[in-house]
Design a protein around this nucleic acid. Structure first.
Lengths: 153, 153
DNA sequence: CTCAGTGCAAACCGTTTGCAAACGT
DNA sequence: ACGTTTGCAAACGGTTTGCACTGAG
């Protein structure tokens, strides 16, 4: 739990560094992501989790966008539903992870593999294209769905 | 030009194979993609190109979705604008290509590299995840924008 | 002849915006 | 005190839908 506090502090520092203010709403939203690191929430899902407080939806959208612009969150869109989802950026990891999205149950698995470095180098040389970011999504069938019939999640 | 006709026939055959009808609207939309293979049109862009005929927007959306579902088009969403775009699938190429998206001018470069096969194999072994498709987008700065100042497209 | 496909306009829904009040620093 | 941030509700814009008409097979 103390570790979580230290982590939170890192993110708050990043907000301050961008001359944005620390508000209860922002801290609350940040904590939702910190406490659910394997999830990929939509704006609406965040809004639901905030029903106890009276945070408005505009604030949620504005906060999520702020966090993306300062590098705290990353927006991802899976082809399943095409809704914007947000994923906490690991401040201590240079590269963003990739996603395996199961076409059957919709589960999203994160992988940390970094084999793309080779590809990036090749692209920078061959196309003179300076890569700043990449996003890789694999669609397919996860191990749990493999044996079973094709059903909804 | 004859080659184009043969190509068109392949796609029309695919429509028939899916028990869908060949209508003037569908042929017209298909031809737009065949004649602009390097573009990634949005539904609206297609609609504009059809102003001469009186095709309705609902038809455009329904046709694009049909083409996706039968494997003639592939939907791609670039983070620049987040609008759905459509890319013709090469019926003779097993793997879909990848995209380099310039953060400065918005240009989209297609690359055919297939280094992902290695990664796919690794993923199938390590995660027991059967990959059926992948999508890889590199964001960065293209060669033309490299030297120049950062401007709009 | 029959049902899939079309056009139109209205509905949909995730997201954005304008503005006055409330708050962080 | 100042400029940010917030909440509300209305607007926005890409996409979908309902329905009667049309046309491909």
């Amino acid at each position: 739990m103390d570790f979580a506090k230290i982590e939170l502090r890192q993110y708050l520092a990043k907000i301050k560094a961008n001359r944005a203010k620390i508000t209860p709403q922002r801290v609350e939203i940040l904590n939702i992501f910190l406490n659910n690191k394997n999830d990929h929430f939509t704006a609406e899902e965040i809004l639901v989790k905030l029903t106890s407080s009276k945070t408005g939806q505009a604030t949620v959208y504005r906060t999520l966008e702020l966090f993306c612009s300062i590098g705290i969150l990353k927006k991802v869109i899976f082809k399943n539903d095409e809704i914007s989802r947000y994923d906490l950026v690991d401040l201590n990891n240079r590269h963003f992870h990739h996603h395996l999205v199961c076409s059957n149950c919709g589960k999203v698995i994160e992988i940390q593999d970094d084999l793309l470095e080779i590809l990036e180098e090749k692209i920078e040389k061959e196309y003179q294209f300076k890569v700043s970011n990449h996003e890789l999504i694999f669609n397919g069938i996860c191990s749990e769905c493999k044996g079973s019939d094709i059903n909804e999640p």
